[in-house]
Design a protein around this nucleic acid. Structure first.
Ligand SMILES: [Mn+2]
Ligand SMILES: [Mn+2]
Ligand SMILES: [Mn+2]
Ligand SMILES: [Mn+2]
Lengths: 220, 220
DNA sequence: CGCGCTATTTTGATTAGTCAAAATAAATCT
DNA sequence: AGATTTATTTTGACTAATCAAAATAGCGCG
């Protein structure tokens, strides 16, 4: 059985390889896991010995099919747990990430499947992050962000890709959660500012950086 | 923060000191935790340095008030998790112990309290084990067992004190769960046998050893 | 081509938790 | 009391995971 440390390494490699060509540099991995680079190198070599990753010295690391399977299961547990905590226990979506970080390693497959059924087999978690299916399929559709989408068209928020408590709290406050409707009224590249118009209420000003962390799709 | 190892040591010391004069011998602790005696000695000395236990060399170990508080919280988590798994996720009462053994270390106090509320502040878990209150109070009433109670009187099962899957499966099969009504029709010390009569259906024969693991109270 | 910057790897130590086996203390039995 | 058995403690060694700091490999650049 993989230790929680191993599970975390694999999960982070999976997440980081989404935003790259598949090869994750050691530095990025170390930063993401909050360890020093030497530690990541050592661990990755051990994971390679176990057949969970392939290590290209001085270039980076990628998951093997077996490692990917483990990582997907951990991610599935993480996101289903978050969904449970928000939908059933009514916890704040800003605090569930830290909880799930621990619980993802403590949940058996039996509990996982019961939770999945209880929640009605959801495909996204409270932040809009896709939940891998039992078979390891995960929606990887590419969405526009509030920083890149067309102006003045009806939009629907599909995902908030910043897990930090502060950002989530701010988003919550302004009704910026998955499913919410809005338009981007204008964008000022020079000032780095975006103005949003929700269906009702005041316009919402947002930095371009923040806008880039909210994914949207065209919506009625 | 206490590691899961530390939490397990404290919880086992708590449980073992219920069935003794409060001083738990190293041998018993080691057996209970499935480690070799030297390991228990080493760990207990470390726990003593942290002020969580008091160690009487060559005699045994007891919890300090701080250690007891930690142990009670872990036990509360364990039993509330078991209750959740059975009552909400509809898992089998024979399998939840192993699950809770892991989850008890991964649940935050925030989740603990939400679970408690969701379940309606239960005072016993699916096996009838008492759940310590948020303040660390735990019912410690002493009950008779099916091996020691009076004959031919209406009884109510209050607790099944054998966590093994086999025993719980057997008990389930025969309706021997907390809340169930029955009588002890006779007891044969020589043969080591007890005969139970449920309200309906066939009499149930049971060994004295097994009978001693089912706690009962006089019941309508 | 050679120099220097940066990312990575290596080396040597450390911590938590464990076991095997030897040493010791305590209890029990002649 | 002295010898024997049993429980506990000590010692030495090991594994997983980590860090600090030194060594190295690649690069980009003049
Ligand atoms: Mn984690
Ligand atoms: Mn999420
Ligand atoms: Mn445990
Ligand atoms: Mn129980």
């Amino acid at each position: 059985m993989a230790s929680s440390t191993v599970e975390n390494y694999l999960k982070h490699i999976l997440l980081l390889s989404e935003t790259a060509d598949g090869l994750v540099p050691m530095g990025a991995l170390a930063t993401s896991l909050d360890v020093v680079p030497g530690t990541a190198t050592t661990m990755v070599k051990a994971l390679a010995d176990e057949g969970l990753v392939a290590h290209r010295p001085r270039q980076g690391v990628r998951l093997t099919p077996e490692g990917r399977q483990v990582a997907l299961t951990v991610l599935r547990k993480h996101r289903l747990v978050e969904t449970f905590l928000v939908n059933v226990l009514k916890m704040d979506w800003a605090e569930v990430h830290a909880e799930a970080e621990q619980l993802e390693h403590a949940i058996s497959d039996a509990v996982l499947n019961r939770l999945d059924a209880l929640l009605g087999h959801p495909t996204t978690d409270p932040h809009g992050d896709p939940i891998p299916s039992r078979l390891g399929k995960m929606d990887s559709q590419v969405y526009a962000t509030l920083a890149t989408c067309v102006l003045d068209r009806p939009l629907r928020i599909v995902r908030v890709t910043d897990q930090s408590e502060e950002f989530l709290q701010f988003a919550e406050q302004n009704g910026l959660r998955p499913g919410a409707r809005l338009r981007v009224v204008d964008r000022n590249l020079a000032a780095g500012l975006v103005n949003l118009r929700p269906p009702t209420g005041d316009p919402i000003p947002l930095s371009l950086a923040a806008a880039g962390r909210i994914l949207v799709a065209p919506g009625k």
